[in-house]
Design a protein around this nucleic acid. Structure first.
Lengths: 191, 191, 191, 191
DNA sequence: CATGAATGAGTCTTCATTCAT
DNA sequence: TATGAATGAAGACTCATTCAT
């Protein structure tokens, strides 16, 4: 009789929104942003095309929200308020964490690399990307400096590139990429 | 005003084809495959849309030919008929070569990563990719085995991943990626 | 906390209805009927989309009711029960009244002309329009006949057209249209 | 075998463009701009939807080109290079011309009034409208001044409004509007 | 060999309307 | 009575591909 409460509506919206973002992330990661149609998203989410636009003003807005929410989660994980100091133990922990994050959120990372590899299409990352990565690079630089390397910054950048490459190989050819072994080798080599 | 010889026609066709592929590679790399229209390709190549279809049966066929020709060139460079043996000197040479190749053919590699990151869209690489990479991995495995590593295969895979990551960073953020320094560090660390 | 009486409910409904019609008239006049969305109306009226349909069965029904109510008001003003006789004094009064009506209800007249200029879309006026205008034309015809014109009916039609044109110019380019002066000239010329 | 000549293509384009504009003008005038779908235009023109966009970049661009081309024609007719002087004879000629123009291009004028009555939607006329009308008003002002009127400018504006109103009545209710008689009355009254 | 007009399926998006609550 | 989530049909626009010339 009476309309739903504010709270009920809030709940419905929250759920739907997550559902749409979830489904869209999967499709964007699998088939690419421009190859994924709103139709496909709506149909996999089991809703009508029109409803999508009740939650996101456009396909691009949907993508942006997915990316930003993913990035936000990420920043939470790589807690930036930890002191700039990385012990050997923490370094190992950091590597483990990184692997876990990629493994836990494969879809997000696939989308990440797909978008990265096509910057002219949609600059979705703004400065957020560098803002996230830079502190990490700095911490790693410090770490390698303390380890006595002559060019710790390049060392850090190399390490970053290595992690990118590992993620790439893991995501796109997991069958031929023995993650655990690789992790071990990394720790031996860089830890 | 005598009619052109068979050969001259052949020559014209060949040139046109290369021209189209060249232009298309640039556009695909910059803007992505699905975002690049036949119109854009034809217009940048200075020919008519219709003519495109005289040389390539479809947009996808064009892409495939670009990729395959690029892969073929690649295999030529990493000459597979060299013995499976990699001296320290040759290792350094190999790294230098790898860097040169990426730097020389940026467009191809951008397209490569973009396609890699979206396998569901177009499986352009068939088995060609593994066929190219596997021998390299084997050679590297041998190399690392001789160096005395306990898990030389993972070491080789890691090295491959590293090179991927380095290429990625170089291609998509060249300004913040000091290639030469990185190269040096790689040689020190892995050579 | 006693329940509202029938009458109070009736009152509320009436108010809501007026409010919706008022807001819709403004929007239709400003942006056009088909360009105005139900959403826009509801939101400017501060109610929900659904409630709109509680008062009007459709967008078109809303438009019709707006137009008809406007026309009804109009007929009240140009009281048809006055005798068919128009003295010189009454003629001046009639002109003044006409100007006042247009100035007082700009939105309605804008909508009126917009709808008039697009009869194929929505024939909202049915016969009502002619029913309203015809008596006026007759009265004017009589007036001009008494003034001794040879073709009083055409004279009356011309006068009607003139008033239309004046309204049009006033409504859509008020800055460049000196209404008061124009009114004076009309009275001089036709009075 | 060989492609069409430049000229042939030019010819084809010219024809198609006119055809589309012609059909679109009719529909816009009859049903209104926003109520007329590209589908309707294409289908009445006997072409595919897509082809429309080969000639006009958007629906709005199509409208603009129709309006501008109509305005251009108009300016040709009301030749602006005539001296600013209007004899009695010329005045009569001017009125006749005006009637002829409206009668000859009913669709254009219907569209004109429909757009005028909905300025917020699309400001298609820019300044073109005033640029066209202002010189006419000036000429009329001079004319009425020479005739000895005390407020010749208002007289001219009134005359303009009258012509608008006449056009309106003629276009939207031709059956009840005896143009020829009206014309006669205008000449008598204002000539 | 070469052109570009033409097609039509498919894309994103909007919006009047319905309905469970 | 009142809400706004949900639908679905329709709209503007794009683009790979075909084909007469």
């Amino acid at each position: 009789m009476s309309p739903r409460t504010e709270n009920q509506y809030e709940q419905i919206r929250e759920n739907r929104k997550h559902q749409i973002m979830h489904v869209a992330l999967e499709l964007f990661a699998e088939k690419g942003y421009s190859t994924t149609s709103i139709n496909a998203i709506a149909s996999r989410a089991g809703i009508s095309k029109g409803l999508m636009y009740n939650y996101f003003s456009s396909k691009e807005a949907l993508l942006r929200e997915i990316v930003h929410s993913g990035m936000a989660e990420l920043m939470d994980v790589f807690d930036p308020n930890k002191d700039n100091f990385l012990t050997d133990e923490e370094f190992v922990f950091f590597i483990n964490e990184s692997f876990r994050i990629v493994q836990d959120r494969k879809y997000f990372w696939k989308l990440y690399f797909a978008l990265l590899a096509q910057p002219a299409v949609l600059n979705v990352f703004d400065n957020r990307l560098r803002d996230t990565v830079l502190p990490l690079i700095r911490i790693m630089t410090d770490y390698f400096r303390r380890k006595g390397f002559t060019d710790p910054e390049s060392e850090a950048l190399l390490f970053g590139a290595l992690m990118d490459g590992v993620a790439l190989n893991y995501l796109y050819d997991p069958e031929h990429f023995p993650v655990e072994k690789i992790k071990k080798v990394i720790i031996e080599r860089f830890g």
